[in-house]
């Protein structure tokens, strides 16, 4: 019984990882690729870790496995966030069929308003941007 559950968890992990890798290869721009790889990597390895914990039935192993899973849940989104932020900052292009980019709008507005922008004006600009957009559309 235990082996069956371990097998199913391993299968789930492998399939999710494979689909995530496929998504990373197929998606059109960096941000969509990042979405595919982050989610798949986290869930895939978590499934495999839980399978290992169940297979060994040992407390020390289980604690390590839970540690790895918790660590993944905390760090994978942070890593994705850092890469996406750096990419947007360095102007890695969005997909040509991207429909909206409010972060880019905010940055351009802040630059157009006054150069160099003092922090306060940047702040209000950033806070107001979504509302302005809503009125326009």
């Amino acid at each position: 019984m235990k082996d069956i559950i371990v097998s199913l968890l391993l299968w789930a992990g492998a399939i999710f990882t494979l689909l995530g890798a496929l998504g990373t290869l197929r998606m059109p721009d960096l941000y969509t690729r990042l979405q595919a790889s982050t989610k798949a990597g986290t869930l895939g390895v978590s499934c495999i870790m839980v399978a290992a914990a169940l297979h060994f039935m040992d407390l020390a192993v289980a604690v390590r496995a839970v540690l790895v899973v918790a660590f993944l849940f905390l760090t994978a989104p942070v890593a994705a966030h850092i890469i996406a932020r750096a990419a947007h900052f360095t102007r890695v292009p969005l997909w040509s069929r991207n429909i909206i980019d409010e972060l880019g709008d905010t940055r351009r507005n802040a630059k157009a308003a006054d150069a160099p922008p003092p922090p306060e004006s940047l702040v209000t600009e950033a806070g107001r941007a979504p509302d302005e957009r809503r009125e326009r559309s």
Partner: peptide, 30 residues
């Protein structure tokens, strides 16, 4: 772009963590 390479490397590393764990189960060595 550079971030694309980073994303790919990160994914490969994560998959490797999974491979190591599967290997641990296979050789029964925690």
């Amino acid at each position: 772009s550079m971030p694309d390479h980073v994303v790919a490397l990160d994914l490969i590393g994560t998959i490797f963590a999974g491979v190591i764990t599967v290997y641990a189960i296979r050789v029964d060595e925690p």
